[in-house]
Design a protein around this nucleic acid. Structure first.
Lengths: 202, 202
DNA sequence: GTCTATATTACGATAGAC
DNA sequence: GTCTATCGTAATATAGAC
């Protein structure tokens, strides 16, 4: 069950870039990326600073891995079949739902992504990809508006921003419960309902 | 018109804690508080690092002054007469409107407040006062729900969080235009409408 | 009020032993 | 893979001249 009883290579109970990442992201989210030193990470991981450099090239690589994971999840939602065909309003609603689900499933990684400021190259790259994602959703909303399925008195760009503002704010307080699957789905329902009962025609 | 032609004390065109604060907050918001060094502030203000220490005790005092200003504005909204009397749903709507207006009027200060993490004493104090404000609004929503003016299928605590999530997300993209008063009011209208058309009964 | 110079500490990252 | 020791840099803050 653990990593110790593997078939061929008797893997030891040590850090991999993956497991170290989980620790690092947790600290990044608590203290902020810039507010986290390698010393902080070292303490949290229970190994020395220099040992961290054995697994990853440095602090920025940890950030890159984390935001990549978040972005991969979000873009995957856009690529799903149900986000590709059907009426635009239904595609928007589906992408909204899946975005919230990805946010919940990859909470620490998405949290970090949403707090990136742009001081390093990695952060600027992350911001660019985020804008790309937002634009794709904005295009979907635009199509739904063209179909007459969105109320006409709200600017599409503004509606997109408020929609994302509401969704993204979940990272500020949502904490997953063990075996809280039903609870999670109910939360997703509420978010989608709150968003679209204020957006949809009729 | 400028500070040079004052009646008694011929004030020189130099920094005060107030004017220096505006510069500092701007940099804090661009780079993040932890990502901003006194050197950054020095360059942005056009004076040396040590000159900054002549005006303020240090970096943290600038943060304290900034978040205080934001919090003062927000709490003032709760103290206004229209937030004190009348039907709860109307008080909620008024406070929502005023909160958005304060956010716009004090944008850089509120932005900084909303990004505080809790690494220093000042930050923890700010987080505590923010929670206090959120609680006051949540109480208003609770009263409105007791009056039957909010839809019953949404948890009050969740609704409060989503409402603030939407409002607070404005700091991520809203930028005031000179003489854009009408535009601002239209934005406030949209935010309030989007929030309550998804919340209000009927 | 502003400056240069500097004290002191913290940071990211590396060297090299085990 | 992990450690201790350390390098070079950048950080906050102070001293003291003008």
């Amino acid at each position: 069950m653990t990593t110790t009883d593997r078939p061929t290579t008797a893997k030891r109970d040590t850090y991999t870039p993956e497991t170290l990442l989980a620790v690092a992201v947790s600290v990044f989210n608590e203290r902020g990326y810039d507010g986290t030193s390698m010393e902080h990470l070292s303490k949290a991981a229970g190994i020395s600073k220099s040992s961290i450099y054995h697994h990853v090239a440095g602090k920025e690589e940890l950030l890159r891995r984390a935001v990549s994971r978040a972005l991969d999840g979000l873009f995957a939602a856009l690529e799903e079949p149900r986000a590709q065909r059907g009426r635009a309003i239904e595609r928007v609603e589906y992408v909204t739902r899946r975005t919230v689900e990805v946010l919940m499933a990859e909470l620490p990684y998405v949290t970090l992504l949403l707090r990136v400021r742009g001081n390093t190259q990695t952060e600027r790259w992350a911001l660019e990809r985020r804008r790309e994602f937002d634009q794709r959703v904005a295009d979907l909303l635009k199509a739904a508006a063209a179909d007459g399925d969105l109320r006409a008195d709200v600017d599409i760009r503004l509606a997109t921003r408020l929609l994302f503002g509401m969704i993204n704010s979940l990272v500020e307080w949502y904490r997953p419960h063990p075996d809280g699957g039903a609870e999670q789905e109910q939360l997703v329902d509420t978010v989608v309902r709150m968003a679209f009962d204020g957006l949809r025609t009729g």
